[in-house]
């Protein structure tokens, strides 16, 4: 049953990935100039013969139909082309940058979701009181702040003034750390970027959880649980918070893409060598094939995260398993 569910979800995701692949191809076609132009622009060379030879080599001289076919067949074999900017296969470049971003994004989703659940729960518990207003309003304020700015503020405060945390990067350069020390070092480097990313999306989860808890508090089953004489702690945790988690989990999936997108600026601000910073580098060096591959990789990450979240949701809500088979 579970395997069939996963199979179904993967099957459903196929057209999505396919549409994105086609879209990305045409996006590249729209661009003025190709990778060779960009290469010449950065290197300053301009030999027409070399250009033609390079175009031949990379298949850029074929007709659009042929190029589309080549593109799709290569995609099927996970061959994403060659990065002119990095002089390495695109797949390799992406693979070296992906883990950091996954770590950043995954931790941020967890921190954002759990903080949101906690604060939203507290806000609902103190419904209509100053605590509620305080939590709701400050979540909104943080939500309105641009991530890059919040990150820079964090750097000014915690790295420059207080010197508690490092300025950026993913590990202390030159320090030869091992084991626990290395882990702690990574954590210290991740605190600011993760908190920045998490806090800017916090408001969503706070609001959702608060609304869902308010609804659960007014629900028939919370009233019935009271009528059965259950202690307040059980009512709040089992009969209100448990069902109220459902919309929050859904939103976590919906916002996975936004989190990944947000990591572009965050990684740039904190000089983290991840996928986000890579996309920025691809843009500035006009390495469009690389950018296209990052779009595809990002989409795949979002699709996979969503399947994982659906699985989690299925565990939380028994009603889903019965309707989706």
């Amino acid at each position: 049953m579970l395997l069939r569910f996963i199979g179904n979800r993967v099957w459903q995701a196929l057209p999505v990935v396919l549409i994105v692949a086609v879209g990305v191809f045409f996006l590249l076609e729209m661009a003025e100039g190709d990778a060779v132009d960009a290469y010449f622009a950065t290197t300053g060379a301009g030999d027409a013969g070399l250009a033609a030879q390079l175009r031949e080599q990379y298949g850029l001289a074929d007709s659009i139909g042929t190029r589309f076919l080549t593109y799709m067949t290569r995609l099927a074999t996970l061959d994403l082309g060659y990065s002119v900017a990095f002089s390495r296969p695109v797949t390799e470049v992406i693979a070296s940058r992906l883990p950091v971003t996954l770590m950043l994004m995954g931790t941020s989703i967890l921190v954002s979701g759990s903080l949101g659940v906690l604060l939203g729960g507290i806000a609902s518990w103190r419904r209509g009181r100053p605590t509620d207003a305080g939590i709701t309003v400050s979540a909104l304020v943080f939500n309105a702040m641009p991530g890059f700015w919040l990150g820079l503020l964090g750097i000014i405060l915690f790295a420059v003034k207080l010197r508690w945390l490092p300025l950026g990067g993913i590990g202390t350069i030159g320090a030869d750390l091992s084991g626990l020390e290395s882990l702690l070092d990574t954590v210290r480097h991740l605190v600011l970027p993760v908190m920045t990313l998490a806090i800017t999306y916090l408001a969503l989860y706070v609001r959702l959880m608060r609304a869902a808890m308010n609804e659960a508090a007014d629900s028939g089953w919370a009233l019935a649980a009271r009528a059965r004489g259950l202690p307040e702690s059980k009512i709040v945790l089992r009969h209100m918070a448990r069902p109220a988690l459902l919309p929050v989990v859904t939103m976590l999936g919906l916002k996975a893409g936004a989190m990944l997108g947000g990591s572009v600026v965050i990684e740039t601000v904190f000089a983290i060598p991840g996928l986000g910073r890579l996309s920025y580098e691809a843009v500035t060096q006009r390495d469009l094939p690389l950018l296209a591959a990052i779009l595809l990789a990002g989409t795949l990450v979002v699709v996979i995260v969503n399947i994982l979240i659906d699985l989690f949701y299925r565990k939380l809500d028994p009603r889903i398993a019965d309707t989706t088979g």
Partner: peptide, 12 residues
């Protein structure tokens, strides 16, 4: 499909 592409990456 569009929703699956990280929006900011697409805008970029």
């Amino acid at each position: 499909a569009v929703q699956s592409i990280p929006a900011f990456l697409l805008a970029l």
